[in-house]
Amino acid sequence: MSRIAYVNGAYAPLNAPLISVMDRGLQLADSIYEVWAVRGGRLYDAEAHMARLWRSLDELRIAHPMSEASLWAVMRETMRRNRVRDGIVYVQVSRGAAPRDHVFPSAAVRPTLIVTAKNLDQRAIAARVERGVRVISAPETRWARRDIKSVNLLPNVLARQAAKEAGAFEAWFVDDDGFVTEGTSSSAWIVDAAGSLRTRALSTALLHGVTRAALIGLARERQLAVVEAPFTIADALAAREAFISSASNPAVGVVTIDGRPVGDGKVGPVTRTLNAVYLGA
């Protein structure tokens, strides 16, 4: 079955030419995106992802493309047309098509809305959960407003490619002070020597992870200590466990960093528990 996308009011094959060459998302990365995980036909953390989408639009002063109710309807119809039960829904909104200029268009333009949906390889996800993943470190080279989920992802692309070429799954960005900010598409965590969960506090330096927030809530419900504080690569290598989290990978153990083992080099019990509890929530 060919995949179907929603673009500005039309459902069409994924490769249909429906975007203007003058779209500011294409020309200037003047665009934001959001990703929902779908499991068993259910959108996980649905409202929190929608709230983050609206926040990103508002931070960039991009008009909302439609009402929230209408967007939910489009997302579910896109899921239905693509027969998505276990995968993701991707939503992207740009400021729209206008003559190329760094300043905002002088006349009102219609935002460009794209919605796609696809199933993911659940065996590959299960293998990551079971065996864990390798991570490398990379210097922080991104812009200063990482709290906005912008499509300006070239530094992430380069770091993730470096990870792949090193035989790793993810790269952790490290800032000028030596602290880990986050991964290219995930939040970064450790379970420190005291048994506390540690992940960097929210700021403009990192994306406000929806799955991150859900895991913190679940951990605190189970009386696990959570410390929102930065950590270094050395801290991570000395930790009991490390893991990443994202919409499609809720809690996946990190077994090596830069080729060196974390703990005993296996997925730890806290990581496994959080993953199981999140998926069962």
Rank of each mutant, 00 (worst) to 15 (best):
residue 177 D to K: 14
residue 235 D to P: 09
residue 59 E to A: 15
residue 99 P to V: 05
residue 181 T to S: 14
residue 57 L to R: 02
residue 109 V to G: 07
residue 78 T to E: 01
residue 20 S to C: 09
residue 147 D to H: 15
residue 113 L to S: 05
residue 249 N to W: 04
residue 151 V to S: 12
residue 278 Y to N: 07
residue 32 I to Y: 02
residue 94 S to Q: 04
residue 20 S to M: 04
residue 72 W to C: 02
residue 95 R to H: 06
residue 243 F to C: 06
residue 217 G to I: 08
residue 156 N to V: 11
residue 112 T to E: 01
residue 68 E to A: 15
residue 53 L to N: 04
residue 242 A to D: 01
residue 189 W to T: 08
residue 199 T to R: 05
residue 107 A to K: 15
residue 222 R to L: 11
residue 255 V to H: 02
residue 71 L to E: 01
residue 53 L to V: 08
residue 111 P to I: 01
residue 140 E to L: 15
residue 238 A to E: 10
residue 41 G to E: 08
residue 101 D to V: 06
residue 54 W to V: 12
residue 128 R to W: 10
residue 76 R to H: 15
residue 218 L to C: 09
residue 186 S to F: 05
residue 4 I to C: 13
residue 153 L to D: 06
residue 126 A to E: 14
residue 250 P to K: 00
residue 102 H to L: 14
residue 126 A to P: 11
residue 70 S to T: 12
residue 185 S to K: 10
residue 17 P to E: 00
residue 112 T to F: 02
residue 101 D to P: 06
residue 149 K to S: 07
residue 273 T to C: 11
residue 165 E to V: 08
residue 244 I to D: 00
residue 117 A to K: 03
residue 235 D to E: 07
residue 106 S to M: 12
residue 75 M to V: 13
residue 64 H to K: 13
residue 61 R to Y: 08
residue 109 V to R: 01
residue 219 A to L: 07
residue 147 D to A: 09
residue 278 Y to W: 11
residue 70 S to W: 00
residue 212 R to W: 03
residue 156 N to G: 14
residue 144 A to K: 13
residue 253 G to K: 00
residue 69 A to M: 07
residue 137 S to P: 12
residue 24 R to K: 09
residue 59 E to Q: 14
residue 272 R to S: 11
residue 6 Y to S: 05
residue 212 R to L: 05
residue 23 D to N: 10
residue 255 V to K: 02
residue 116 T to I: 09
residue 90 Y to F: 15
residue 173 F to G: 01
residue 116 T to Y: 03
residue 161 Q to W: 11
residue 49 H to C: 10
residue 262 V to S: 05
residue 102 H to M: 12
residue 213 A to H: 14
residue 264 D to H: 05
residue 56 S to M: 06
residue 162 A to N: 09
residue 95 R to Q: 03
residue 7 V to T: 07
residue 206 L to P: 10
residue 21 V to C: 11
residue 15 N to E: 12
